[in-house]
Design a protein around this nucleic acid. Structure first.
Lengths: 200, 200
DNA sequence: CCGCTCATGTAACTGGTTACATGATTTA
DNA sequence: TAAATCATGTAACCAGTTACATGAGCGG
């Protein structure tokens, strides 16, 4: 079966480094994103990273300890991060900073050029469900759009709340929040079209 | 660490069925989506499902055989699908159809009520990268937005191409395509804002 | 002193990925 | 007849998930 035209996002392919040691391993989206967070807010700890991921409206990752701690260890082994242990009273703590190699890999991930997994139609679970609205009894469909509208409003509220917590930070971070809002508006507009299709 | 307010999408939690046999196992997004595809286009084969996933602009999944074949087997074991082997000449073929139990689980997945993973800010790898534009030398940022704009145009073209292939099909499927277009428009508008921020 | 949050990790598991194997059918 | 596609599957692997363990510090 030939491969499709739309590349899959997120997964890291097999490590070619075992065969060609000087070839950089392709990183997963989460790895690269965390690398960016360490660049932006470092020096920081695994716990700090988890808190940032958790606070963010992006629901792609759970920010679970089982993901983040080994991930930072991997990035340190690969030389993209430099970690150091420190003691705060009786408390051990491990802080990470980005290395020059890490920064160059971060820049390569950001682009340009954009990797082929960087641009795609974003996955939206609401859209997936809407695709099968025909499977619902016709009488239930209006209730679905109502529920979807309410849920979108709720998400919008949370995004606005979150955007207030990042006042005065990096202008690009703010623009990203703005994108979340624009996206939600587009989805709300689409829901309106969907409602009128159902009433017909 | 307390759990965040934004639930993670896509993963299926541990099977509670081993403890309470009458409790339905929570399905992953892919499982539910494929269930929907079988409902919509069934009776169909694993290969047919793969082709549909591959043709679709959604890049969440690779439609790999290693994902789809075991998935259909799982759904059949769970009683959501009914499969039957048939022979076309010398060729064996396995076709699946949705069962009444499968349809009720599909409806439960669609909602209402919407599950807490159904509505979220969609994950967008382009947005993730934009968040860290500050890590690029200032002179490279305009090139990034140019590349992003070109890539979005390209995706838009492919989505329009795809939407032409589904002429005359289910109206909800068409609306879903429409949503993809609206989303891309919103992202293009956002890029414009981003460009003016960078020129400043 | 109890419970909550801070903080660092490990262990078991699993869904989906890449890669491979096999053979039938169609097309150049 | 060679190459491409149709079609069904399996095997090894791995990133990220859930769940657990451990202990420090802190407020009531």
């Amino acid at each position: 079966m030939p491969t499709g035209v739309f590349p899959v996002v997120g997964r890291a392919p097999r490590d070619p480094g075992s065969l060609c040691p000087d070839m950089a391993k392709r990183r997963s989206e989460l790895e690269s994103f965390v690398l960016g967070l360490v660049w932006q807010t470092g020096p920081t700890s695994a716990y700090g990273i988890r808190r940032q991921l958790q606070a963010s409206p992006s629901t792609q990752w759970s920010a679970s300890a089982g993901a983040i701690y080994p991930l930072l260890q991997r990035l340190e082994r690969a030389g993209l991060l430099k970690g150091r242990a420190l003691k705060h009273g009786k408390r051990r703590r491990r802080e990470y900073e980005i290395t020059p190699l890490g920064l160059s890999e971060l820049r390569a991930w950001i682009g340009p050029p954009l990797g082929d997994t960087a641009v795609s139609v974003a996955y939206d679970p609401l859209r997936s469900r809407a695709r099968f609205l025909g499977a619902l009894p016709a009488g239930d469909r209006a209730a679905w759009t109502d529920a979807a509208g309410a849920a979108l409003d709720e998400v919008g509220r949370r995004v606005r709340e979150w955007s207030e917590t990042i006042e005065g930070e990096d202008p690009f971070l703010k623009l990203v929040t703005r994108q979340g809002e624009l996206e939600l508006q587009a989805r709300a507009a689409w829901l309106t079209e969907l409602k009128s299709l159902i009433r017909k």
